[in-house]
Amino acid sequence: MKIAVPIKFVPDLVEELTIDPSGTALDTTWLRLIINELDDHAVEQAVLLKERGGGDVTVLAAEADGVDDFLFTAAAKGADRLIKLTGDFSTADNHALGRAFADVIKELQPDLILTGVQAHNDLDGSIGPLLAEYLGLPYVGYVAGITPGGDKVIARKEYAGGLVAEVEVKLPAVLGIQAAEQPPRYVAYSKIRQIMGTAKIEERPLGALESGGGVMIERMFQPEAAERATMLEGSPEDVADKLVGLFKELGTL
């Protein structure tokens, strides 16, 4: 099975986040990027599938600080091909990133595309469904286990309240990974160093970014403390009267 795993880097929340003077974006001076945790799970799941049933895993990433190290780590885990999209991604939203990935993935023609189901900086929707749309493929999100079977897979999709559904999906398809079947494995530094000598990162220069369909950020700000709630006291009748009065005051009644 041919698997493609597009991943992205997100701001590391260990560092304090500040907003830049424009007021619409994070200040990148102190920003440090880290692999989106669920994308790390997607890579692990891809490697697990390869280990169980054979296959070929390609990891794709957009250029960012630390991406090379991550790609080499993925190779040490078992990824066969590493592709880095080069260019300026500093303003890329998920729509733009999704289109950029879709162009490369079309060419790769994978059977399965695994990506983290979400990231904490998904302002314009998560990347999986966008990719599926651009590629014209089915999508299942919140997947925490995959059983391959010929030209389809059974994906275990997690629902709130501890429910799990088994969804049969025809390949090729895009799956949004909630958790790999085992936590992402540790790769010893010596192994990463070794693979740096043998693995190659293919670089693909990026054309123009197309962020059409995404969102416009008007203002970015730290959470602001809202006003305190007013507690209505008294008998149920009194409280109901006060509520009706309030609704009238606010013009909703």
């Binding site: 260990v14 880290i34 936590p183 494995r185 540790y186 790769v187 010893a188 530094y189 010596s190 192994k191």
Partner: peptide, 21 residues
């Protein structure tokens, strides 16, 4: 064991943190 990535989750997290931070 480390070469094989075989260790408990806490140790793995500690080593990842040591590498990163």
């Amino acid at each position: 064991l480390v070469d094989q990535g075989k260790m408990d989750q806490m140790l793995q997290d500690a080593l990842s943190n040591l590498g990163r931070y």
